[in-house]
Design a protein around this nucleic acid. Structure first.
Lengths: 202, 202
DNA sequence: AACTGAATCAAGAAATAGTATTGATCTAGA
DNA sequence: TCTAGATCAATACTATTTCTTGATTCAGTT
């Protein structure tokens, strides 16, 4: 498979995604084809390192990324997972062109379609419909972050785990327990016990 | 260990290295301290990815890096290993500011001291002695590449393996056999048989 | 004071991924 | 037609990652 075929075969999920929000005309499709580039990240590979300016907006075709912060004690706190058909970027760093405090890396081998800052601006200029599309998609992410914050400040670990299950059931068996624990803000051991408890109940 | 202490403790091998070639005065040492930055790469982490411009000149403090090319069939061919007290950079890409066809990644967790393109130029301007130092060190690498090329076009796999042993005996037990095979340009299975054969002889 | 929801630490166990070996078969070039 | 090597498949071995469990601790409830 040469790299052109690779691009062809990977771009479709993104076109479908846009199409579902607002139909695109052929000029717009063409722009997407030109400006989004596929890229493979291997497990554990960094997509964004602390201190670098985030220059990419990523659409996940397959695999799974995580965005997280490492605190002074060296503990990692996962802000967000992103798997198939989700977006991930450090939008603060991307927008303001400031060094990122967050890191992004791949939990599994992951194929993304990415557009860099410059090309995204050019996309907005050449096809203003994408202003709306990106507004909508950012709203979606924003809302889901709000929900999660609310969960976090109002629930016990078990409740948070259950709502993780409700929203991300497809990731529950796919991700190592340590990652889920770090997303929920509990210790891996405690998550192990929660799971055990629930298994016995059922 | 805070990051200052980390820098302090890691820079010495590089100062020793330079010192051995040509003694440095304190201003020059100071420049080295300011312009070279320590960095840790974890096993499998990329130092340079295909398509990016190589912007760093790396001195290996500990660990091991490899520079390689992935061909159209997906096979990887290792051009060079670099372990303690060696240098590694894609000098073509670094010098011409062109996208790299080669990749560099870490075979082991590796600490390097790196200087970027801009800072290296500034080092040459502020301390012309480094023109000579870097000329010497690049000559060394050049000569060893020539030797290897000559080996490659003139010897059997077994001879090449033996001369790998002669030059890199410290890496023989440290690197996975697959990596050595890819360096020698043979299949891992065949290397296994070569080793077996030599073990029986002895 | 006792209970609950958690954390931390240590030790093993289980699962997975990475690496090496071996035999069988195939191939290109001297 | 030899020889130096590749390729494929199966198995074995090793190392790393992940999970589980018990013991202990701790800070806020009740």
């Amino acid at each position: 498979m040469n790299s052109d075929q690779f691009e062809q075969s990977q771009i479709q999920p993104l076109l479908d995604y846009f199409q579902q929000l607002i139909p695109l005309d052929s000029k717009e499709k063409q722009l997407v084809l030109e400006l989004f580039k596929p890229r493979l990240y291997r497990r554990r590979q960094f997509v964004l390192q602390e201190g670098d300016v985030c220059n990419q907006f990523n659409f996940i075709v397959r695999g799974c990324l995580r965005m997280y912060k490492i605190d002074e004690k060296g503990n990692t706190h996962i802000l967000q997972f992103a798997s198939e058909n989700w977006w991930l970027t450090n939008i603060g760093s991307f927008h303001d062109r400031t060094p990122s405090e967050l890191e992004i890396d791949a939990i599994e081998d992951t194929v993304v379609l990415q557009i860099n800052h410059e090309n995204l601006l050019s996309l907005y200029i050449n096809a203003p419909k994408f202003d709306r599309i990106f507004r909508v998609l950012i709203e979606k992410s924003f809302v889901s972050t709000q929900k999660r914050l609310l969960q976090t400040i109002s629930s016990t670990a078990e409740e948070r785990y259950n709502s993780f299950l409700a929203s991300y059931s497809h990731l529950n068996n796919r991700l190592p327990q340590t990652q889920i624990a770090s997303f929920l803000g509990i210790s891996p051991e405690f998550l192990s016990r929660l799971r055990n408890k629930q298994a016995k109940k059922a």
